[in-house]
């Protein structure tokens, strides 16, 4: 009786928690970032065209600071994230995107890991299937030494 009560309480807590999490994350989501944060996020997605391999946000060079100021200005003027990013791509080329799009030259970058995931999953599944076909029944499972339940 007591354990049933416990499990009811547990389920109730779990469901309530899920409701709070889903509710909080799904329905209260206007873009609450400040203009500063938005400009920062954009700056960290763009490579500083004149620095050594760092984003506009991370570089401490004067050029990067000027570019940061330009981004901030565009944010204040009300331009959207993608519009600002697009302006940089138009001026400097797609090369400034630190996360290349999954098309054209950046396709393999996204496709190969996914292909790797699929191949790995198939390999693991194959391990399972092969063990079905080996005559497992002949070998009593106790033949494999089994040590203490640890490691």
């Amino acid at each position: 009786m007591r354990s049933r009560l416990g499990s009811v309480v547990r389920w109730a807590v779990a469901l309530m928690a899920i409701a709070i999490i889903v509710g909080g994350l799904a329905f209260d989501q206007p873009d609450t970032r400040s203009a500063e944060q938005r400009a920062d996020d954009i700056a960290s997605s763009l490579r500083c065209p004149f620095c050594e391999g760092v984003s506009i946000a991370e570089s401490t060079s004067q050029v990067a600071r000027d570019l940061q100021a330009i981004i901030r200005e565009r944010v204040d003027e009300g331009a959207g994230d993608e519009a600002i990013t697009g302006e940089f791509v138009a001026r400097y080329g797609e090369w400034v995107l630190l996360s290349p799009p999954a098309s054209g030259i950046g396709l393999a970058l996204w496709a190969l890991p996914i292909a790797g995931l699929v191949a790995g999953a198939v390999a693991v599944a194959g391990l399972r299937r092969r063990s079905d076909t080996t005559d497992d029944r002949d070998l009593p499972s106790a033949s494999v030494p089994s040590r203490v339940e640890s490691t």
Binding site: S45, G93, S99
Partner: peptide, 10 residues
């Protein structure tokens, strides 16, 4: 294939 950058966002 030309120049492409891969950084933190990726």
């Amino acid at each position: 294939g030309g120049q492409v950058s891969v950084g933190r966002p990726f």
